[in-house]
Each structure stands twice: as C-alpha cells, then as structure tokens.
Write a protein that binds this DNA or RNA. Structure first.
Lengths: 156, 156
DNA sequence: TACGTTTAAATGTTGTCACACTTTTGTTTT
DNA sequence: AAAACAAAAGTGTGACAACATTTAAACGTA
C-alpha cells in the first residue's frame, strides 16, 4: 500500500518529503510489529535489542556505555532500562574490576534461552521475503545510508 | 555512513535484516533532527504534524479520529495531545453540531503563523537534496511501500 | 601531587505514552 | 421502538522517556 493511501495524503511537496515521511511511517510500522511480538514474551523491543547486543559481546561483558552506542534508537535512560531486565533475571550486573565507574553486564542463561525462543519470530522471516527480494532489500539499505549522508544527527 | 558503522555491527544475517534495522535507525535519526527543530518553537514533532493536518483540512474542521488516521506514528492518546496544543492557543476545539460525540478542531491564526515560521526548517530542504537525488528519493519511497507490502500492521 | 576536566553511571523530576475502561452518542437489527 | 452494537472521545493508571543534575572514578597536565 502506498504511503499516500496509508496516511491519506494527496501529494507531497517533493520526493524527498515523500521519502522522509515514508521512512518514519515504515519505522513505526516495524516498531509496532516487533513490540507486539516481543510482548508475547513479556519484554519490550528495546529489551530484546539489549539482550542481542549482550549476547553478541560474549564472552566479553558489556557496559551501559557500549549499549548506548549500539542501540538502534537513542536511549539516554539506559541505566533504568537495564535495571528492568536485571529485575527480570535476564541480565546480571557487577562492578568492573579495572574501571570502578563502569558496570559489567552479562546475559544470563535465562536471557539466552529467551532469545532462542523469540528470535525467529523477531526476524520477520515470515513477512519480509514475501514483499521484497533480497536484492531490493540491499538496495533499500544503500539508499537509507545515502539518505542520512555523513551528517551526525547532533549537528543538524 | 553505513549502518554497520553507525551501530557497530560486523554483519547482518540477511539483507532483509539490514534493511529493517536501517529503517528503524534512520527513522529515529529523522525524528531526532525534527524534534530538535520543532523544539526551537516550543512544540513537539507530533504537535507540528497535527497542525499540518489541521491546516490541510481547511476550510473544514478535523476531528480526533481524523487525526488518528493520518498521523505518521501511532497515537492512541490523541485526546490529550490535542489538549496540549489547545492549551497553547494553536488550535480551537468545539463540539460538532451534527454528531455530538465528535469534536471539531480548527487551527488558529496563531497556529497558522507558527507553521509559517517553522515549516521551511522542518522540510529539511537544507539537508536532503545534498545526499540523495530526487530520483533516488522516489525510488527509496517505492521500496519502502514494497517493504511493508499489503499487510496491515495490526494483523502481523 | 593537586587541580581541573572528562567519563560512566545513577538519580530526581516532570511530562508523556500505552493500555484498558467509561461515557456519551449514533447506527443497526429485529 | 427497544435492544444490541459500534464509534468518538475522555479518563485513570502504571510504565517509560527526556532532561538536567549528581556522584564517583579516571585522566591529563602543569
């Protein structure tokens, strides 16, 4: 379904406008689906993303700071986000020996098991290949990289 | 800058994965920029979007419901969102004569003036054409439409 | 060494979001 | 016309987000 129909707009002032709106709309569309799938296991999408990052770092620990740099969406409140997954027993937290300011984070067995269970569903492999060829997906990603250009988001 | 560098990922499990992550990342990137620009005039991006929709409906009124259907991002709490712009004097609200359930919304003179002031900045005309040709922007939008396919987000 | 600066994380506060539920009005069915 | 249903908006609540500030540790440098 075209973006014009989705949000009932007759026309856009330019193709750049159309693309911008479409990126935000589609990002939100993706978010809705993924939040819904994550909710089946009583976690949020952000919590899922944190778990994936933690697993990706194994056997090394991660820190709040590392998480911040790798999150897809900006998360200034990473401390309390981690609080919540620690409370669920999916992550363990202990002080770093070398840098006493930092905190080492590890995904627990429980966290790993949950990832295993949910991951297939979160990949959207049941959806995406229906709509887009892998070639087109590649091209889409290239265009998005180009869309952002080289401007760091803080400076705009 | 490639998405791999932005979030420090070595590789993705597929091009669909890469594209999905990139859409969310770029959506967030856009959001950050637009929120920042809207904040210069003490409004949020959602409030700006509401004002644009209201103006687009002129000379007709809008309703909460109409807004909900046209917002780029899901907004279940549209009532209170409108409360806030009404409180700022940017929108006026009065009961619909025909359907007593509905509420008619109009953008005020103050709202129109604010749109005028801020709109150029919000278009990102200073940014986007540097990075992407209009042709590419067109293509990007087409790919995003295709990415979502025909599945309504509630059913996924 | 001592000082100022930077960095990592935590916290306090305020506002907003998400979800479910309620109220009121309109529409449909029998 | 009455009952059942659907739709529009509003509300109560708890979780979460954003922003600024704070605390503690590390670093850099004179």
């Amino acid at each position: 379904m075209k973006i014009e129909e989705e949000i009932k707009v007759k026309s856009f002032s330019s193709d750049w406008q159309r693309a911008s709106i479409n990126i935000m709309y589609t990002g939100n569309w993706l978010n809705l689906i993924l939040e819904k799938r994550a909710a089946k296991k009583q976690i949020t999408l952000q919590q899922f993303n944190v778990l994936r990052i933690l697993r990706g770092q194994l056997p090394n620990p991660s820190t709040n700071n590392l998480l911040k740099n790798r999150m897809i969406t900006n998360t200034p409140d990473i401390s309390r986000l981690v609080d919540r997954i620690v409370a669920k027993g999916l992550v363990s937290r202990c002080k770093n020996k070398e840098d006493k300011r930092a905190v080492d984070l590890f995904i627990t067995e429980k966290g790993l098991a949950l990832l295993e269970e949910i991951e297939d569903d979160m990949m959207l492999n049941d959806l995406l290949p229906q709509n887009l060829s892998e070639q087109e997906a590649f091209q889409l990603s290239e265009l998005l990289d180009k869309f952002r250009g080289s401007i760091p988001p803080e400076e705009v």
